[in-house]
Design a protein around this nucleic acid. Structure first.
Lengths: 125, 125
DNA sequence: TAAATTAACAGTAATAATTCTCATTATTGA
DNA sequence: TCAATAATGAGAATTATTACTGTTAATTTA
C-alpha cells in the first residue's frame, strides 16, 4: 500500500459520485501533484482486483469506479454521463418506478454476466 | 438505403449473436469486399438513429449491435466477451434465476438511464 | 436524357481512453 | 542497513471510434 494507492482509495471513498479514472487523477493530484495518470489506472485495477473498490460495468465510453461495495443500482444521465445511485424499494415493478431522484427515466439496461458454456469447458482445472 | 447499408442490416438480422462493429465489417466484406470500416460505423449509427437496429448499452470495451428490436435481457461472458440473449420468465426473482442457457452466472448490472435534474433544466424548450 | 445537386462512399488521419515500457524511486524483509 | 522486490513517472504504443478528404454514385431538375 503505497502513498499513491492510499490517496486514490481515500479520495474514492470520500465521494458519492462515480468518478472516471481521469476525475480520480485530478482528485489525487491535489494531494500528490506529481502522480501520473498511468499510476491511477494501475492502482484502480489493483484495488479492484483486491475487492477494495468496484470497477463499474456501466455503459458509456469511460470506466467509472465506486468505493461503495454494497450491492446497489445505478442511474446514468444520457446527456452529461454522470452516474448516481438509484433508490430501489423491494418488489418495485417497472411501470411503478418513479422519479424519487429527480431524473427523467428513459430506459434501462439489465445485463447478466458469467462464463459461457464454451469458456466454462475450456477452463483449466 | 444503399447497397452497403442494406448488407449491414441484413447481416445483422441474420445472426442471433450481438456482433461488434468490426465483426459486422468482416461479415459485410464477404458480400462487398471493398466496403470500408468507416462506412460500417456510419451506417450502424444511421440505422440505430432510424430505429432499425439497436446499439447495445452493454458493458465491455466495444459497442455491440442487435437486429432484434424486441425488449429483452442480455448475458455476457466475462471470459470471451460474447453476448447472448437471456431468457426471462415473468416474476422471476434473483435467487431463482437458474442456468437455462448453460452460463455460470456470476453477477448482473442494472442501470437506468435518463436525464439528470441539471440536464433536464438546461434543456432548450 | 443530361446537367446539377446531393448523399454516401473508400481510404486515411485524428482523437481519446487505456495499456505498456523502462529507467528510476520507494517499500519491504532479512 | 542493504539487497530484493514492487511501484512509480513520463511518455510511447495500442485500440476502438470518429472526423476528414477527395471521389463516386444516386437523385433531382430542367
Amino acid at each position: 500500500m503505497t502513498r499513491q494507492r492510499r490517496v486514490i482509495l481515500e479520495e474514492l471513498r470520500k465521494v458519492r459520485s462515480h468518478p472516471t479514472a481521469d476525475e480520480i487523477y485530478q482528485m489525487a493530484r491535489k494531494h500528490l501533484p506529481r502522480i501520473s495518470l498511468g499510476t491511477v489506472y494501475r492502482n484502480l485495477e489493483v484495488l479492484s482486483d483486491q475487492g477494495l473498490i468496484k470497477k463499474l460495468d456501466v455503459s458509456g465510453d469511460r470506466s467509472r469506479f465506486d468505493g461503495d461495495l454494497t450491492e446497489h443500482v445505478h442511474i446514468r444521465c444520457i446527456v452529461c454521463g454522470r452516474v448516481d445511485d438509484f433508490p430501489v424499494r423491494p418488489a418495485v415493478t417497472l411501470p411503478e418506478i418513479n422519479n424519487d431522484c429527480g431524473y427523467e427515466i428513459g430506459g434501462f439496461v439489465l445485463e447478466f454476466s458469467g462464463q459461457c458454456p464454451q469458456c466454462k469447458k475450456a477452463e483449466v482445472c
